[in-house]
Computed example of a mutant assay.
Amino acid sequence: MYLERVRKAQEELRIAGYDIMLICDRENLIYYTGIPEIECGGLIIPAEGEPLLVTLWLDIPHIKHLLEFEAVGYVYGRDTMASAVARLISKMGYVAPKIVFSKYFVEVGVYETLMNNIPGMKVINGTELCYKIRAIKDEKEIEFITKASEMVRKGMEAAIDAIEPGMTESEVLGYAELAMRKAGSEGSPFRMQVLTKDRQLMTHPYATTTTIENNQPIVIHLGATYRGYVSKMCRTIALGQVSEETKKIYKIMVEAQQAAVKKSMPETPVKEVYNEAFKIIDENGYGDKFIVDIGYGIGIRQSEFYPIIGKNRDYILKENMVIDLMFPTIYDKEFGGPRVTDTLIVKNPPEILTKYSYDMVQK
């Protein structure tokens, strides 16, 4: 299975005219090896020939019997991953090779070592290519995401059961994390959210030691990980008395989300998915307080940027893509903030994996 993924990457390299893909981030190491424990590793995928994993020598005995291809070790202190990779690539006989990196940012030390040891090397940002390759999930990936989804539901139940005025955001999150861990989660894929009203319009807030006061909506956004794969879900509850306008906004968000989910079938342009949600937001008078993107792919990362579901995006949904809908809210300073998010499989009909009540639970 993992060697098949390598072959797909090699085909993409040949089509693009690149020589090597160098995988040195944890997400793609998991994708191409199936081993979540690899750290300080580099996977060399040449356009032609066999892949080679370079990792710490102490990990080789464990890794070798799990891998579908060869691995070699280096001794930290005498060598580095970058120097070992540079040495091996130099032996391959390339002249000014075009090397695709698998993430937006490459550590300066890695970059310098490769540039100093591989004459004429050209660096290619292959992040979108990597996300594209990973976008359509196979049966095993869907199994892992489904299990993570079950864990997220356990966390949501625990958070809602536990929350009461006087607790801190992080205390509530602690109940959710414990429940997810007990259910088998390997940890949070992002900084999770239990949010009081004043921070719900921020871009990337997270649960803090803020004390939760009564009579406000609370946003709970959780994620779980299983075998390196992620699921996430968001719901909004009412703690004490909440304004009728806020309740109305949450109902609008749920209606818009469900319309977008229903549209998320194979071969659908993502613009059409966005339009289904926006139409409902706009009909209710909030079109000018909504943003242009509403979802991402999900897999090894909580937000995989292929596809991006948005107004101005040109992606086409494919069967067995896994996406999230919707991450934004209505950005009204007085009443906005409620959110609802689910993880779902693109199919006909679409399948929501994070099945949980959409009612604004009253606490």
Rank of each mutant, 00 (worst) to 15 (best):
L344R: 00
P205K: 13
T211A: 12
K232L: 10
E255F: 06
S170P: 06
A207N: 11
N116P: 07
R235N: 13
I345K: 00
V254W: 04
A159L: 12
I252T: 10
V261P: 00
I23H: 02
W57H: 06
R235F: 10
L173H: 11
Y104I: 11
R134Y: 02
E141F: 03
P119D: 08
Y226W: 13
M1Q: 09
Q362G: 08
S264R: 01
N320D: 15
G93Q: 04
G73H: 00
A47Q: 06
Y104N: 13
K355E: 05
M360A: 08
Y229K: 05
Y358I: 12
K132P: 06
I142G: 10
T208N: 13
A162C: 15
V123G: 08
M321A: 08
R227P: 01
L129D: 04
R227I: 06
K103I: 01
G34D: 07
I124H: 06
I280F: 00
L29E: 02
L344D: 00
Y358C: 11
V273Y: 00
I316N: 02
V172G: 15
L173E: 14
M21Q: 10
E143S: 15
S90E: 06
I294F: 04
P46I: 02
T168I: 11
I298T: 13
R7M: 14
V172Y: 12
M192V: 15
Y331Q: 09
E141G: 02
E267F: 01
E107G: 10
P349Q: 12
L222M: 15
T203I: 12
V270D: 00
V123N: 08
A207D: 12
I60A: 03
I309P: 01
N320V: 12
F101A: 04
M92L: 10
V108L: 08
R339S: 08
D342N: 10
I163H: 13
V152Q: 07
P205Y: 12
I212C: 11
V230D: 03
L66F: 07
G287E: 10
T208M: 14
N215Q: 06
K279P: 00
P36Y: 04
R301W: 04
Y104H: 12
S149C: 05
S231C: 09
G17A: 09
E107Q: 11
C24K: 01
E244I: 08
K363S: 12
G295E: 12
K289M: 13
I44M: 03
E157Y: 09
F278N: 08
I352W: 03
A238W: 14
F290V: 09
F290G: 04
I45S: 10
E245D: 14
D314G: 07
I330D: 01
M81E: 04
L29R: 01
P61T: 03
A47E: 07
S264Y: 05
A9P: 04
K98V: 09
G73I: 00
A135K: 01
S149H: 02
G285H: 07
T343L: 03
R153V: 14
K279V: 00
I118E: 06
